[in-house]
Amino acid sequence: KEFRPGDKVVLPPYGVGVVAGIAQRSVSGVSRAYYQVDFPGSRSKAYVPVEAPHSVGLRKAL
């Protein structure tokens, strides 16, 4: 896996977040693995496909 729990990442347009782990989510009846990204200071979460994280701009924070 490219990202691990605890990694600081950037996800446009949300900003800097932390990978909380990998979650299985069902979309249109198909279960897939997603990185769960939490954003400190907020209750917001984002789910990014493990198979294509760069397709939505997910990258490691510098």
Rank of each mutant, 00 (worst) to 15 (best):
Y47W: 12
R32G: 14
S31N: 11
S28Y: 09
Y14S: 01
A20D: 03
L58Y: 02
Q36Y: 07
K45L: 09
A61R: 05
R43E: 12
L11W: 06
S28A: 13
V37G: 00
H54G: 09
L11E: 02
V19E: 00
R4T: 07
V50E: 02
P13R: 08
Q24R: 11
V27C: 12
V9R: 00
Y14F: 11
K45C: 15
P40R: 07
R32K: 13
L58M: 14
P49A: 06
P13T: 07
G29I: 02
V56T: 08
G57E: 04
R43D: 13
I22M: 05
V9L: 03
Y35W: 05
V10I: 13
K45V: 15
Y35I: 10
E51D: 13
V30N: 06
Y14N: 02
A20T: 13
A52M: 07
G17A: 01
P49T: 04
P49N: 05
V56H: 14
S31C: 13
L58V: 03
V10P: 01
R4P: 14
G6Y: 02
Y34H: 04
Y34R: 00
K60E: 09
S44C: 15
K45N: 06
Y14L: 07
H54Y: 10
E51C: 09
Q36C: 10
F39N: 00
A46I: 13
A61M: 12
G17K: 01
V9D: 00
P5H: 05
K1G: 13
P13S: 06
V18Q: 03
D7L: 03
I22S: 10
R43M: 14
G6H: 02
E2C: 13
V9N: 03
V37D: 00
V27R: 05
S31M: 14
R4N: 08
R4H: 11
V27E: 09
G41F: 12
R32N: 06
K8A: 08
E51S: 09
D7G: 02
V56S: 13
K8H: 11
G21D: 04
V37Q: 01
V18W: 12
V30M: 07
R32F: 07
G6D: 01
Q24Y: 15
P5A: 11
S26N: 12
A61G: 04
K60I: 09
G41C: 14
L62A: 11
A61C: 15
V16K: 06
P49G: 03
A20H: 08
D7H: 03
P13I: 05
V9I: 06
V16M: 11
L58S: 02
P5S: 07
S31Q: 11
A20W: 08
G21P: 00
A33H: 10
Y35R: 01
G6T: 04
G15F: 04
P49E: 05
R43P: 14
A52T: 07
V19K: 00
S26V: 14
E51A: 07
G6S: 01
A33G: 06
V19T: 00
S31E: 09
E51V: 05
A61D: 09
L62G: 13
K1W: 15
L62N: 13
G41V: 07
K1Y: 15
P53Q: 06
S28V: 06
H54V: 05
V27I: 12
H54D: 12
S26Q: 11
G41S: 10
E2K: 10
E2T: 11
D38A: 12
R4E: 08
V48W: 03
V9Q: 00
P53D: 05
V10A: 04
Y35P: 00
A23Y: 14
F39E: 01
V48Y: 03
K1I: 14
A52H: 10
K60D: 08
V50Y: 06
L62M: 11
G21Q: 07
R4L: 10
V30W: 04
K8D: 03
V30Q: 09
A23N: 05
R4A: 09
V30L: 11
K8C: 14
G29Y: 02
S31Y: 12
Q36S: 05
Y34C: 06
V16E: 10
V48S: 00
F3H: 09
G57M: 06
V30T: 07
G15T: 01
I22R: 02
F39T: 01
R59V: 09
L62I: 11
P13F: 10
Y47D: 02
D38F: 14
G57P: 04
Y34E: 01
E2W: 11
V10D: 04
K8M: 13
L58R: 03
Y35H: 01
L11F: 07
Y35V: 03
H54W: 12
V48F: 04
K45Q: 11
L11G: 01
E2L: 13
L62H: 12
R32P: 02
V18N: 02
V10M: 08
G29N: 04
G29L: 03
V37N: 00
V50P: 00
V27N: 07
S55R: 09
V27H: 10
P12C: 13
P5D: 04
D7C: 09
V30R: 07
I22W: 03
G41W: 10
E51L: 07
G15P: 01
K1D: 13
R25Y: 12
R59E: 07
V19H: 00
L11N: 00
L58N: 03
L58D: 03
S55T: 10
D7E: 08
G29V: 01
K45M: 11
L11M: 07
D38C: 15
Y47C: 04
K60C: 12
V56K: 08
V37I: 15
D7K: 01
G29K: 03
V16C: 15
R59G: 04
R25V: 13
A33P: 09
V18I: 11
V19C: 06
D7T: 08
Y47N: 02
I22T: 06
S44F: 15
A46H: 10
V19R: 00
L11S: 03
V56F: 12
K45P: 15
G29M: 02
S42N: 10
P53S: 13
A61H: 12
R43G: 13
R59F: 06
A46C: 14
V16P: 07
K8P: 05
Y14W: 12
K1L: 15
P12R: 06
P53M: 06
A23D: 05
G15S: 02
S42C: 11
S31G: 05
S55E: 11
S28F: 10
E2P: 10
G21A: 11
G57Q: 07
L58Q: 02
V18A: 02
Y47G: 00
S44G: 13
P12W: 13
A23V: 15
P13D: 05
S55F: 08
G29T: 02
G15N: 02
K8L: 15
V56Y: 14
K1R: 12
V9S: 02
K60P: 14
V50D: 00
A46P: 02
F39D: 00
